[in-house]
């Protein structure tokens, strides 16, 4: 895993993965800001875009470029323990077994947060998620309460994520730059990861956008 001097940069994060990552990094704080500043129209829009991004990321985790696939970076508990003991040996570039779970945890928390928001209503009856008509007031208020609290779980997960990035930065590995350029230095004998063609990203984006649109419209055309 260590970055050898003189090692060659390989393409690691494809453009769709990077785009989704930075869009989420902007829209999650924006969602918080709009929610706390009485701009629920924009808050909902931000949530719908995040829903589309999340759906895209899930599809991309199945059909995307090698390093972006869940099958590449999600390891069972045994794999994580071996990694922590330093027994995993040579690993492909990308998320390590612990980082893979960090990514999954963030995506799961975001999915839950979006799901809750879709059903939530405010106390004043002025603002509501597009699916709130499917449930009663008391349930929708309960979900809204969880929606508020879950935000801090997301904050905690993001703090861990940023903490890990700083940890590596202190050891001379700039993961942020890799998420910007898509490239990462790797050992000279490292095989270049397989990159997915653009048409596949277009297909995934179309499916994700269509589902997000349908959900945002309250499951009605």
């Amino acid at each position: 895993m260590a970055a050898e001097e003189g090692s060659a940069p390989v393409r690691l994060w494809d453009a769709p993965t990077r785009l989704v990552h930075w869009a989420m990094a902007l829209l999650i704080p924006y969602s918080w800001w709009t929610a706390t500043h009485d701009q629920l129209e924009r808050h909902r829009l931000s949530g719908y875009i995040l829903l589309g991004l999340l759906l895209f990321r899930l599809i991309w985790g199945a059909i995307g470029s090698g390093p972006s696939r869940f099958a590449t970076f999600v390891r069972g508990p045994g794999g994580v323990v071996r990694y922590l003991r330093g027994e995993s040996g040579a690993a492909p570039p990308g998320h390590n077994p612990l980082g893979g779970w960090s990514v999954l945890a963030m995506l799961a928390a975001l999915a839950a947060q979006i799901g809750l928001g879709l059903f939530a209503v405010d106390e004043d009856g002025l603002e509501s998620g597009p699916l709130s008509y499917l449930i009663d007031f008391d349930t929708a208020r309960w979900l809204a309460g969880i929606h508020h609290k879950l935000f801090w779980v997301i904050v905690a997960l993001v703090a861990l994520h940023i903490g890990a990035i700083l940890f590596y930065l202190a050891r001379g590995r700039n993961l942020t730059a890799a998420m910007v350029t898509g490239r990462m230095r790797a050992g000279a004998d490292t095989e270049a990861p397989a990159m997915a063609p653009l048409w596949r990203a277009a297909l995934a984006a179309t499916i994700a956008a269509a589902i997000a649109w349908f959900v945002a419209s309250g499951l009605r055309f």
Binding site: S132, A140, G218
Partner: peptide, 18 residues
């Protein structure tokens, strides 16, 4: 107040219905 909220949501849901 809860009853107010339930009643008001019922009205809102009707207005959003097809």
């Amino acid at each position: 107040m809860k009853q107010v909220g339930r009643t008001f949501k019922g009205i809102n849901d009707q207005l959003h219905a097809a």
